[in-house]
Design a protein around this nucleic acid. Structure first.
Lengths: 172, 172
DNA sequence: CGACATTTGATATAGTCCATAACAATTATT
DNA sequence: AATAATTGTTATGGACTATATCAAATGTCG
């Protein structure tokens, strides 16, 4: 119940940002953003909130958050890994990853299997249902979410944006 | 005390992301990100965390978070506004803005003045100290933070990135 | 082998951020 | 004058993040 509420709650969220920031016009109600519009961090955060909001909307039928989707993606592409490895590559701390996995496992999207080699670790595997949900999620993300992004930005800009963000995430 | 700890704690944060994501190489330790690297939201979030981290580092001497800096900037550019107006343009909910203002006011960076017209609202004003701190913060942000971003991305890319993020934050 | 350190998953806990409901004081509406 | 709406505020809860600590299992090394 706590789990199923998560995606819905997040969807309902960040409505405060809807109150348009505004700039340029010296209106009575319009406030001047000033150098705030030139602050990359500010624009980054606002853009990220909007994009996550749209992601949640697009993938709402499957009740998946961006973080959960990234876990499923990673499990599919990297079979036979344990919790620490998956959590680390996603920048999730191990203690916090436990509850995330509990949620996914309780929905039968993945499972923990005790490793026979190292009986401390849990090998993470996608269930059949997990693979099915992931496949449907991929389609929703590609056809609705990313498609809209590409439409708004233009294909070339979208690619350039991705490249710059990757560079920021790495060489910074 | 809670206030002064905020910026420091945030600085010390997000060390988990330091464990390099990795892709391409089919190493033993390197996990495949797969379509995750093509997900704009994923790159956006990681980039935003890195940029905020750098912002905190650069402006650490002044103990200002990005949110606090944006408030000071807005107060300076928009005198005579009340809490609701400032909070709304920054996407902060009024209840949450109260504690933020308490922190800034307790450091004598701004002050609430009861409006004579509408005795419900508080007109927000920067104190002299607030203006001085803002001026120093602006220099740190421009010379250290943004300068580094421009260096990494290149001036043209930096401008293009800002434009695209603004478009995402608006037309989305 | 046996003492000691390390790793893995997990629990507990605390802090920050975000969101909603509700309230008193004040102002607007009718 | 009665009612509604707005402003700042408090209380509260949920989500996300970070640290310390633990037991079980494994690794190291004398």
């Amino acid at each position: 119940m706590t789990v199923s509420k998560t995606a819905t709650d997040a969807l309902r969220s960040s409505r405060a940002l809807r109150r348009e920031p505004a700039d340029s016009a010296g209106d009575d109600s319009m406030l001047q953003l000033g150098e705030l519009s030139g602050l990359l961090g500010y624009s980054l955060k606002r853009a990220q909130l909007r994009v996550f909001e749209d992601f949640l909307r697009c993938v709402a039928p499957l009740q998946l958050t961006p973080a959960q989707f990234s876990v499923l993606l990673l499990l599919d592409k990297n079979p036979g890994r344990n919790q620490t490895e998956i959590a680390n590559t996603l920048g999730i701390l191990r203690p916090n990853f436990v509850a995330m996995l509990d949620a996914l496992e309780s929905r039968d999207l993945c499972a923990r299997m005790r490793s026979t080699n190292d009986r401390r670790s849990h090998i993470l595997v996608l269930t059949d249902k997990g693979r099915a949900v992931l496949a449907r999620a991929k389609k929703l993300v590609a056809n609705k979410h990313e498609a809209r992004l590409i439409e708004v930005l233009g294909p070339a800009n979208h690619a350039a944006l991705l490249e710059m963000l990757a560079k920021l995430a790495q060489e910074f």
